[in-house]
Computed example of a mutant assay.
Amino acid sequence: MTRGIRGATTVVQNEATTIIEETRRLIEEMVTANNIAPEDISHVFISVTQDLNATFPAKGLRELPGYTYVPVMCMSEIDVPGSLTNCIRVMMVANIKTDQSRINHIFHNEAIKLRPDLTEKGGL
Rank of each mutant, 00 (worst) to 15 (best):
E22L: 08
E22G: 01
E22P: 00
T23E: 04
T23M: 11
R24V: 02
R24H: 05
R25S: 08
L26H: 03
L26E: 02
L26P: 01
L26V: 04
I27H: 04
I27F: 15
I27A: 01
E28S: 11
E29R: 14
E29W: 04
M30W: 03
V31R: 01
V31N: 01
V31F: 07
T32G: 00
T32N: 03
A33T: 02
A33R: 13
N34E: 05
N34S: 09
N35G: 01
N35M: 08
N35P: 00
N35E: 07
N35A: 10
I36L: 15
I36C: 02
A37Q: 14
A37K: 14
A37G: 00
P38I: 09
E39Y: 10
E39S: 10
D40L: 06
D40A: 08
H43F: 15
H43L: 13
V44S: 01
V44W: 03
F45L: 11
F45R: 08
I46W: 05
I46M: 11
S47Q: 08
S47I: 02
S47C: 03
V48N: 00
T49A: 07
Q50N: 12
D51I: 09
D51V: 08
D51C: 09
D51A: 04
L52P: 04
L52I: 12
N53R: 10
N53D: 12
N53T: 11
N53P: 00
A54I: 10
A54R: 10
A54C: 04
T55A: 14
T55N: 04
T55P: 02
F56Y: 11
F56D: 08
P57D: 10
P57N: 11
A58K: 10
A58H: 09
A58F: 08
A58I: 08
A58N: 12
K59Q: 13
K59Y: 12
K59E: 12
G60F: 07
E63K: 13
E63H: 09
L64S: 02
L64N: 02
L64F: 03
L64G: 03
L64D: 02
P65N: 11
P65I: 07
P65S: 09
G66E: 03
G66C: 08
Y67C: 09
Y67F: 15
Y67S: 05
T68K: 14
T68L: 06
T68G: 01
Y69L: 13
V70I: 15
V70M: 02
V70G: 01
V70D: 01
P71S: 10
P71V: 13
M73Y: 03
M73Q: 12
M73H: 07
C74T: 15
M75A: 14
M75I: 06
M75F: 12
M75E: 12
S76D: 11
S76N: 13
E77S: 15
I78C: 03
I78R: 14
I78L: 11
D79T: 05
D79R: 10
D79V: 04
V80W: 12
P81I: 10
P81N: 12
P81Y: 11
P81H: 11
G82I: 10
G82P: 01
S83W: 07
S83V: 00
S83P: 00
L84A: 04
T85P: 01
N86H: 15
N86R: 15
C87P: 00
C87Q: 12
C87D: 03
C87K: 14
I88M: 07
I88Y: 08
I88T: 05
I88K: 09
R89M: 13
V90L: 14
V90T: 12
M91A: 05
M91T: 13
M91K: 09
